[in-house]
Amino acid sequence: MSFTRRAALIAAICTIALAFLAPDAKAHGYKIGDLEIGHPWTRATPPSAKVAGGFLKVTNKGSQPDRLISATFDGSASTEVHEMAHEGGVMKMRELPKGIEIKPGETVELKPGGFHLMFIGLKSGLKEKERLKGTLVFEKAGTIEVDFAVESMGARGGNAQEHHNHGAKTQ
């Protein structure tokens, strides 16, 4: 085997190995202080849509509670922290002015049907596979810049089982 051939082979093997080792492009995460933030995402919007939901996971690895108190999104005029609940056949949504608490050792998931960020006044439609910047503001850990990955219009996040468990959850 010639040197160039061997070099090409090694390069090819490295590329393949890297492709497997590199973190899945779809799942991304961040750390700020004691908080781990998993995969901020949103959904592609129908034409003329003025709002979209923002979703992510936050795990508190520390010993003090923290709160997600606000957020911003480059694609919208404003962003609010909301909670949605399905009660007695009615979809109810409300703003959480004090944000969402993340207790020490706990993971809070913002997902369809539950807690979410509400992106209000979209500047343009969100298209699948785009990424838009935003920030998350925590009471103690501070502010972190994140990318929101735009998933398909029908994306529900997680698997169906999780979704059903959540749907049946009542307070």
Binding site: R43, T45, P46, S48, A49, K50, V51, A52, G53, H82, M84, H86, M91, M93, P112, G113, H116, M118, F119, I120, M153, G154, R156
Partner: peptide
Amino acid sequence: TQCPDICPGTLMDLTA
């Protein structure tokens, strides 16, 4: 239309 989840979700379900 300014519904973040249930409305587009249901319309997607019906479309599918």
